[in-house]
Amino acid sequence: MSVTHSRVTTGPAELEPCGRSDHPDCGIRDVLDRIGDKWSVLVVVELANGTRRFRQLQRAVDGISQRMLTLTVRRLERDGLVLRTVHPTVPAQVDYRLTATGTSLTHLVKALADWSLEHRDGIALARRAYDAEHPGHEIR
C-alpha cells in the first residue's frame, strides 16, 4: 500500500467478520469496528451539526490527516452513514452529510461524547494512579 493510498479496501474478513456466519457476534463486530473508531465518531459528531465540506471537516476534527479523513468519510459512505455530494463547479466542490441511518446514530455518539467529557478528569486521575503504582508498565 502506498503512502497516498486512500481506496476503501474489502476482503474476506469483511465478508464473514467472525469466520462463521451463524456465530451470534457475526456482523456486530464489523459495525462496531466502524462506528467505534475515534475518527468515525468525531466525523459523525461534526456532521451531526450539518453538512460540511471536506476542509471544514478537517479543521473541525483536530489531529486528523487529509488521508485519514478521506479514508474515514469513504468508509462511512460505504456503510451508508454519510452521503457525499459533488457539485459541478471548477474546482469541484464536495460536501458530506449524514444519511438517515447516520443521523439515527448521532444520539448514541453524542451520549458517548458527553460521557467522555464528564469522566475525562476521573479517568486521567485513575491513569496517573495506575502508572504510579506500576512504574515502567504504562499503557499508551
Rank of each mutant, 00 (worst) to 15 (best):
L108W: 15
I123Q: 08
V31C: 12
R59A: 10
A132V: 02
V86E: 07
D62K: 14
F54Q: 11
V61L: 05
L71T: 05
P17E: 00
T106D: 00
V8C: 08
L125P: 09
D62M: 12
H5G: 11
A126G: 07
D30T: 10
E133W: 04
L76F: 06
G122S: 11
L81M: 13
D22P: 09
D22S: 15
E46L: 03
V61D: 08
L108P: 02
K110W: 06
A129K: 06
S2W: 06
H134A: 00
S104Y: 01
H23K: 08
V44L: 05
P12V: 04
R128F: 14
R29D: 01
R29K: 03
D114T: 10
R127P: 01
A132S: 14
D79C: 04
I64G: 02
A100E: 05
D22W: 14
R78V: 14
Q66L: 11
T4W: 09
L69E: 03
L15Y: 07
H107Q: 13
W39S: 07
V31E: 10
I123Y: 14
R20L: 01
T99D: 01
Q66F: 15
L112F: 00
L76K: 03
G19W: 01
E16H: 02
K110E: 12
P88M: 15
N49M: 09
F54V: 04
M68R: 03
R84D: 02
L117V: 10
R67K: 11
D121G: 03
H23F: 11
I35G: 08
H137R: 14
A48T: 03
M1N: 04
E14C: 15
M68Q: 02
L69H: 01
P88K: 15
K38P: 15
V109H: 00
R127V: 07
V8P: 05
R97P: 11
I28F: 12
L57H: 13
L32K: 00
D62V: 14
T106R: 00
A132C: 10
R20W: 04
R34Q: 03
V44Q: 00
A124E: 12
D121A: 14
V31W: 09
T89C: 00
M68C: 04
R52F: 13
R120K: 02
R7S: 03
H137P: 08
V43S: 04
V45Q: 12
L71I: 03
G122F: 08
R74E: 05
L112G: 09
A60I: 08
T99V: 04
A48G: 12
P91V: 07
R75W: 07
R53E: 07
L105I: 05
G19P: 06
A13D: 07
G122N: 01
L42S: 02
L47F: 13
L83A: 02
I28S: 05
H107E: 06
G63S: 06
S2G: 13
D22G: 01
V94I: 06
S116D: 10
A126V: 09
L117M: 07
T9V: 11
T103W: 08
T72N: 07
V90S: 13
R52K: 10
H119F: 02
A100F: 06
R128K: 13
